[in-house]
Design a protein around this nucleic acid. Structure first.
Lengths: 249, 249
DNA sequence: GAATAATAGTGCTAATATAGCATCAAATGT
DNA sequence: ACATTTGATGCTATATTAGCACTATTATTC
């Protein structure tokens, strides 16, 4: 399995345990339910003992917890990790005021998400009738190729990366994806500069390369609406970036 | 340096690289500014090359980023980690509606925090006049021994753990702490079941052992106010726990 | 500006941490 | 009840990694 890496230049001596350990951690978090070590090993296509050992260490660190029926769930340390990483990220705190403004301007649902493997993970997902506290952290991971957020983020990835990502686990991840069709779509998305999904949601990237993406969603986005919405999305995304920079001083 | 571990029973073969790698990551996140590998090695009391290698790996994974002046800051992967861990944690999403209610009831500042080493990291910190989006993720880490949240959380830790935590890095962490006096205070906190700091803030634990703690703060909390506030805090904390459990189905 | 000190990063290699096979007890499936 | 799968571990070969020594770069000192 090809692990997600960000720089094409590996350090002199990459630490494999750290790499595979964080992989296990994110897989555990994504499971959202108790998961056994062999099941996870099958999902990650890794030797069982290896995964069992890493899960054991995560439990030792408090990031995982063993259940009475010998499975693993996230542990108390996840709260520390989420608090610290949220504080280090600055993304949600920078985005929230601007999301509020965007919701008021458009009257639409607004979503802020990040891409993890082939899934979009929402930091925010809600519209005008939803309170902010209820909109923070959408519930389920969502398939990237069916999401405007996912598509705009995948579009900034290399063809090789996308191929690799989608040619593995095709059966496991809920249906087979025609990779060539996907790549064609991604080219279109890249050209347009926004992702459009089913004429119901429209996304632009935050940052370049994108660290996240911002979308509006409603029942039907008409062709005529797109340019203004894209402009508004870009302004909001750019504002988020500026605020993040300011928070980092 | 004694790494924070949650279970007294180590697994058969704990993975040291994962342990030290996550340590580096949290230290990087807590720095909040660019930090060099030697500086971090000094902070962590670890051999320099080791830390440099781990930071290099974190950069490879996108969790860190190398700056042009050869230092490290958090990288784009931190947004993925924060989104995923926040989603896996359920703490903030469960707490927000109840925090809103508590603010309305008390008219005070409410804070939700977790303990990382000797620091409190706030997931929420704000009062009635502050918008929710501005109150999410308080800015700075705060010394635990000067915080009601820190104290109530430390009070549930073993004497050995607290001793170990405070006897190292005394000079580095901004002043020497009288550990015996601290232990005496923690005993008092444990006995009372709440942490009180300077008569300005009052905290109770969320969960047992506590995963987080919840506090109210105002200019002056009188002795007479304490019982009702403690009751309200406990009700809120218990409600958060219930909501978290429900979100995990 | 030159000299000195500190830094990040790397090569190398000894050694130690770890991967994986085999095994066992416990849990699940038939 | 038996068969299968599971999580966890011991053991040990070996791959990964820790750390020494070094280099190029940057920062500090005079």
């Amino acid at each position: 399995m090809d692990e997600q890496t960000y720089t094409t230049r590996a350090p002199a001596q990459p630490n494999q345990s750290l790499q595979y350990g964080t992989e296990c951690l994110l897989q555990l978090v994504s499971a959202g339910r108790p998961i056994g070590s062999r099941e996870m090993a099958r999902e990650l296509k890794r030797e069982h003992t290896h995964v069992n050992r890493l899960l054991g260490t995560l439990a030792y660190l408090g990031l995982a917890e063993r259940t009475s029926d010998r499975k693993y769930i996230v542990g108390p340390g996840i709260h520390v990790l989420s608090a610290m990483s949220l504080r280090g990220s600055h993304l949600l705190t920078s985005a929230l005021p601007r999301i509020r403004t965007l919701i008021e301007k458009t009257g639409m649902i607004v979503a802020l998400g990040v891409l993890w493997r082939r899934q979009v993970c929402y930091l925010y997902h809600g519209g005008p009738e939803k309170s902010m506290e209820a909109a923070i952290v959408g519930s389920d991971l969502y398939p990237a190729e069916r999401s405007s957020i996912g598509m705009i983020m995948l579009a900034q990835r290399t063809k090789e990366y996308v191929k690799s990502l989608y040619q593995e686990q095709e059966k496991d991840m809920g249906g087979e994806i025609n990779v060539n069709a996907l790549l064609q779509q991604l080219l279109e998305v890249r050209t347009q500069g926004y992702g459009l999904n089913d004429n119901t949601s429209l996304a632009v990237a935050i940052g370049s390369p994108p660290m996240a993406a911002l979308a509006v969603a409603t029942d039907m986005i008409t062709k005529e609406e797109i340019p203004l919405l894209v402009k508004q999305l870009h302004e909001t995304a750019d504002g988020i970036l500026v605020d993040m920079k300011n928070l980092q001083k």
